[in-house]
Design a protein around this nucleic acid. Structure first.
Length: 264
DNA sequence: ATGGTAGCGCTGCTA
């Protein structure tokens, strides 16, 4: 099986690119973030035309997440159902059963500025996500929680850690919140497959200043699997081709797709 | 033409 996650930075602006990528790469499941559309403007046809079922959760022009599956798509749920944290609902989480797999597509808040209300809300959001795992997930089922975490887990997951002094995405509190999720029983699949010391590919580059060309990026799009998923995970990679401008009229997303392949 | 982000939606915000 092949599972992918991709922050597309607007599904409507990226329709042709997403369709092309799906038809060439044929993942069994694709998790999307930043669809940036409402339920009414969600282009479901671009997936059904290729033989996929899909479910989308969008509340307007910001955020928005979706699940796209060839393995079936059942028990779809939007957002937080159990958390008592004070969280403004922003369409950042969708979860569903794709065949035997429990798949979660998440778009963690950016945080903007360390110490700001947005930064604190990011940490609360991650705490709520852990609560949801505790309340909703079954550890006997293979589970994949993937998406744009807006956190670089290690110093080597950004192009120059000294450039990130005082910035979000690399602070201890963000990493502790991520580790707290892992403590529930999740594994960063890239690190598990290639090692804690491995140089892992970036998944995001700023649009500005030719960052992609200079490889000034970050690894912030993560695939977290529980033990049942880790046991069947074989390889993980990013598709840098999808970040290149190419011949399409639209720009690429600022994120690459991340793909994990399993033994069955 | 020697610059240079992109998407939302229409002014500035978000990332």
């Amino acid at each position: 099986m092949k599972f992918a996650t991709w922050n597309v930075n607007s599904l409507r602006a990226r329709t042709e690119r997403v369709q092309h990528w799906l038809s060439v790469n044929t993942p069994d499941v694709l998790c999307l973030q930043e669809t940036k559309c409402s339920q009414d403007s969600y282009p479901a046809d671009i997936f059904s035309d290729l033989g996929y079922e899909s479910a989308h959760y969008g509340l307007g022009q910001w955020n928005g997440v979706a699940l796209v599956s060839k393995l079936g798509l059942e028990d779809v749920e939007f957002g937080f159902l159990h958390s008592n944290e004070p969280i403004t609902e922003e369409a950042r989480l969708i979860r569903g059963k794709c065949g035997k797999f429990d798949v979660w597509s998440a778009y963690i808040p950016n945080g903007r500025i360390v110490g700001s209300d947005h930064y604190e809300a990011k940490l609360v959001w991650l705490k709520a996500l852990k609560t949801e795992l505790e309340m909703r997930a079954d550890q006997t089922v293979p589970l994949l929680l993937c998406g744009d975490f807006n956190i670089a887990p290690r110093d080597s997951d950004v192009f120059d850690i000294e450039m990130f002094a005082g910035a979000t995405h690399v602070t201890e509190r963000e990493r502790l919140a991520l580790n707290s999720l892992l403590d529930w029983g999740l594994f960063d699949l890239a690190i598990q497959l290639y090692g804690e010391e491995a140089d892992l590919p970036f998944t995001w580059w700023d649009y500005r200043g030719g960052s992609f060309h200079k490889n000034l990026g970050m690894r912030i799009d993560l695939m977290l699997g529980n033990k049942a998923f880790l046991d069947i995970a074989e390889k993980l990679y990013v598709d840098r081709e999808a970040r290149k401008k190419g011949s399409e009229t639209s720009s690429p997303s600022d994120h690459t797709p991340v793909v994990v392949e399993t033994k069955d």
